[in-house]
Design a protein around this nucleic acid. Structure first.
Length: 424
RNA sequence: GUGAGCGUAGCCGAGAGGCCUAAGGCAUCUGGUUGUGGCCCAGAAGACCGUGGGUUCGAAUCCCACCGCUCACCCCA
């Protein structure tokens, strides 16, 4: 019999890792609330066409990374590779254009991409996704970026690199792409194979090449920022003036591109050190053409997604500590059948009163039960034997102070309750 | 999809052709007199050495294939 393992690129988040998840998720909800974002939970899968149109036909995601399947009715569905398309779909479907604009939404949940796993990259990973839909004001771009900034700041991150760029709009992008093509035209024999392919199929991605020999060409390439239309240039300048006024450090990265029709103007990423090659903890930008591509009215939007696994990797790399999982206040140890019965009753009563207590199961020696209490890290051991049952009391042993005292049954609840707040 | 490294009990890990019916540590369980934890001591349980083939008198140790894991490329969270 072959042992089953979790599917490639997926992982069990074990109890010992849960404190990180819990801590992070609590922060996510809190920061979203602080910025006035409301939670939306879209389905895990959508009509495949939503991602084909919403992410873009030419992207790696759509070309080779989607978990697509036919359901029993023959419909093509896809496990979401990202949130934005789903959220915009929901915006259109539920007529959110009648709400005060922009509609500010966030989500937390898994996303799926069929890729070869490596450090910080999984086939099922989790994202914190933030979208502000229905407003083109650069102050919204700023807000979304600030949210990310404050989040990482509160989590205690340092040495983050904020990268920003603008990739124009359908009015100015074709012009710039032509300029870029003209620039590369006579260099094609010198660039790598991938770049020759990009030249034809995904021109902007020429700027993204990591091959050594292509670097000088990229460094000397014309920059999009010099070819933005007035509207895009003004938008970007305004955003930068806000960032500067707030003293937010960032790097202008003219190689940062999202070569898709629906992504417009602002693009940004946040990079963390020390978590491997996949260092982007956050990626986002503006997508003023997306809603239309999904069949809705023209609606601007900005947002970002942050990978929760990568956030946690960064926390571990940077030594950020999180509160440990709370332990039960007490363990009930019993000796003999009568005491066991009394113990079960006590257990039930204490729990009904909201006190976290566990019982040592099995008929074991007191020594063994006490060892369990020590291992679990409970504050008190409540010991019940024949004598205690007779006297209607329980011995309360303080595990840290290592002393103990008898407490009457009708007083034990109040006794523990008085110590609950201090010890938890 | 491509490349590299790795695959011995739940975890870490020795072992490099016969001494392996596979060391050690952590974790687990039991016990250390009669009802008490953390340290210590004793003992127990736990491995078809990833799978399948081959070489050899003999393989955890050599060869091949497959599978899996990890990291990197690509790209992204």
């Amino acid at each position: 019999m072959v042992r089953f393992t979790a599917p490639r690129g997926t992982q069990d988040i074990l109890p010992e890792d849960q404190p990180y998840w819990r801590y992070v998720e609590e922060h996510l909800h809190a920061i979203a609330r602080l910025y006035g974002y409301e939670c939306i939970t879209p389905p895990l899968f959508e009509d495949t066409a939503i991602f084909e149109r919403g992410v873009g036909e030419g992207t790696d995601i759509v070309e080779k990374e989607m978990y697509t399947f036919l359901d029993r009715g023959g419909q093509s569905l896809t496990l979401r590779p990202e949130f934005t398309a789903s959220v915009v779909r929901a915006y259109i479907e539920h007529g959110m254009h009648v709400r005060p604009q922009p509609v500010k939404l966030y989500s937390i949940g898994p996303a799926f991409r069929y890729e070869r796993p490596q450090a910080g990259r999984y086939r099922q990973h989790h994202q914190f996704n933030v979208e502000a839909i229905g407003e083109q004001d650069p102050a919204v771009d700023l807000e979304v970026m600030s949210l990310a900034w404050q989040l990482y700041d509160e989590l205690g991150f340092h040495d983050l690199a904020f990268q920003i760029n603008s990739t124009g709009c359908p009015r100015c992008r074709p012009g710039y792409m032509q300029v870029l093509k003209n620039y590369y035209a006579d260099k094609l024999p010198l660039v790598c194979d991938d770049c020759r392919r990009r030249y034809e199929q995904n021109t902007l991605r020429l700027l993204d090449c990591k091959v050594e020999t292509c670097q000088t060409f990229i460094d000397n390439a014309p920059r999009f920022l010099d070819y933005l239309c007035d509207e895009c240039a003004t938008h970007f300048a305004t955003l930068r003036s806000y960032l500067d006024a707030l003293g937010r450090p960032y790097t202008l990265n003219h190689r940062l591109v999202r070569g898709l029709d629906y992504y417009t103007k602002t693009v940004f990423e946040v990079w963390a050190a020390g978590i491997g090659a996949q260092s982007a903890v956050c990626g986002g930008g503006r997508y003023d053409g997306l809603a239309e591509a999904l069949g809705g009215p023209p609606t601007p939007g900005v947002g970002f997604a942050s990978g929760i696994e990568r956030i946690i990797l960064t926390m571990k790399a940077q030594g950020v500590e999180v509160p440990p999982a709370p332990k039960p206040l007490a363990l009930i140890a019993t000796l003999g059948e009568e005491a066991k019965l009394a113990g079960v009753k006590l257990l039930t009563n204490l729990r009904a009163a909201g006190i976290p207590v566990v019982l040592a199961f099995g008929d074991r020696s007191l020594r063994s039960q006490m060892r369990e209490a020590g291992k679990l890290g409970v504050t008190y051991a409540l010991i019940l034997g024949a004598e205690e049952v007779k006297a209607r009391q329980v011995i309360v042993r303080d595990m840290t102070a290592a002393d103990q005292e008898p407490v009457a049954w009708d007083e034990i609840l109040a006794w523990l309750k008085g110590r609950l707040t201090v010890s938890v």
